[in-house]
Design a protein around this nucleic acid. Structure first.
Lengths: 188, 188
DNA sequence: CCGTAGCGGAACAGCTGTGTTCCACTCGTA
DNA sequence: TACGAGTGGAACACAGCTGTTCCGCTACGG
C-alpha cells in the first residue's frame, strides 16, 4: 500500500512534486520548514506528512533520489570505455547536468548521509578506478591521487554551477570553462 | 562601555573564547544552538547573550572577524608585487591557513552576508585585479576570466581542506596538491 | 576588608517547527 | 448516485531555541 513501487498515478505524481519542491527550497535555504516545502509544492503540509511521516524520511528520500541520479549518470558516461581522460570528461558533463540536486548533499553531507551514501558508493568507486586507469594509460597526471582528483572534480563542478549563477554566463559556457580547466589540471 | 575597543582584559578574552567556540561548533553543525556554543566556550548561555544580545549579533561579529582575517591575509600576500602567478601562489597559501573560518561563509553565504561582505570586498577586488595583471604579464591563461579564477581558487582551497580531513594526509601535503593543481590550471 | 566587575544558573514567556488527529471537500468511477 | 481515494485545513500538544530577568557566587583591586 505504502510501497513506492505500487503507488497509483496520482500518488506518484504528488510524491515527485514534493521531492522536486524540496530540492528547490532546500537549496535556497537548507533550514527551510516543511511548511515552506509544502507551499512550494502547491500542497498542504498535512499531505507532506502523509508521504513522509517525519522530516528525516523526506531527507532520506531526497538523498536516495540524488543517489539514484548519480548512479544513472555514471552509467550513461560509460566510465570504463575509451581513454580515461575522455571518460572523465563524459562523467563531468553528466554530473554537471544534475545541477542543484547535488549542491544539497555537498553543503551538509552529514544531513543526508544515509546507509546507502556514506560508504564508498559504486559511482565513487568507478571514479576512483577510472583515475587509476588514467595513471596506467598515461592520460592522467600520476602525481594526482584518485581521491584528490575526486575532490577536485566535485569542487570544480561546484565552481561551474556557482559561476553560471553569479556571472551572467550560460550554463554551457560554465561547463566549457569547467572542462577546459579540469583537462589542464589532469593532463600529465 | 560596550565598545569593543575599550573592553577590559577579561571581557576581551571571553569574547574571543565565544567567537572561537562559535567557529568550531558552527562548522560542525551550522544550525547549532547558542547553548551548544556556550558549552563549547566553557561559558554560560547568559554570558553569550551579554556579549551578543541576539544570535544575529554573534553571526555578524563572526562575519566581521572572518572578513578582517581575509583582509589581513591578503595584505600579507602582497598581491601587487612580482609576477601575478607567484602572487596568486602566496595568496592561496595565506588563505589556506585561515582554514575552517572560511568554510562558514562559504557554505551559507546568505547567513553571514552583511553590509561589509556582500559588496565586492577589497580582498576580492585585489584578486580580480591580480588575475588581470596575470593576463597582461602572460603568467595566467587569458582564456580564464578573473571571476572564474576566483571561483576555482576558492573551491580548490575547499577541496584541499576536505582532502586534509578525509584522506590521512597532512595539511602541508594537501596544500601542496592544491598549489600544484592550481598552477597547472592557470598556466598559459 | 569592602565594593565592583564578571560570571553562572534558574526561571519565565514567547515563538517556531513538528507530528498528530479529525473533519470536510472534490474528484473520478463503479 | 454512492463510494472511496486523495486532499486541504483547522486544531492541538509537544519540544526546542530564544531573549530576558533576577539572584547568588567568585575574584580582584583599592
Amino acid at each position: 500500500m505504502t510501497d513506492v513501487r505500487t503507488e497509483s498515478g496520482t500518488r506518484a505524481r504528488t510524491r515527485r512534486a514534493i521531492l522536486d519542491a524540496a530540492v528547490d527550497v532546500l537549496t535556497a535555504d537548507p533550514a527551510a520548514s516543511l511548511g515552506d516545502i509544502a507551499t512550494a509544492a502547491g500542497v498542504g503540509r498535512t499531505t507532506v506528512h502523509r508521504y513522509f511521516p517525519e522530516r528525516a524520511d523526506l531527507l532520506a528520500a531526497l538523498s536516495k533520489s540524488a543517489w539514484d541520479q548519480v548512479t544513472e549518470a555514471t552509467e550513461r558516461a560509460r566510465p570504463a570505455e575509451g581513454p580515461a581522460a575522455a571518460a572523465l570528461d563524459r562523467l563531468c558533463q553528466e554530473y554537471f547536468d544534475l545541477g542543484r540536486v547535488l549542491m544539497l548533499v555537498f553543503n551538509d553531507p552529514q544531513q543526508y548521509a544515509t546507509a546507502d551514501w556514506d560508504a564508498c558508493s559504486p559511482a565513487d568507486q568507478s571514479l576512483l578506478d577510472l583515475v587509476e586507469r588514467g595513471h596506467e594509460d598515461g592520460t592522467i597526471d600520476p602525481r594526482l591521487s584518485p581521491l584528490w582528483v575526486q575532490n577536485v572534480l566535485w569542487s570544480m563542478l561546484y565552481s561551474a554551477w556557482q559561476y553560471a549563477q553569479d556571472a551572467q554566463v550560460s550554463r554551457h559556457q560554465a561547463l566549457d570553462m569547467c572542462l577546459y580547466s579540469l583537462r589542464k589540471t589532469l593532463r600529465p
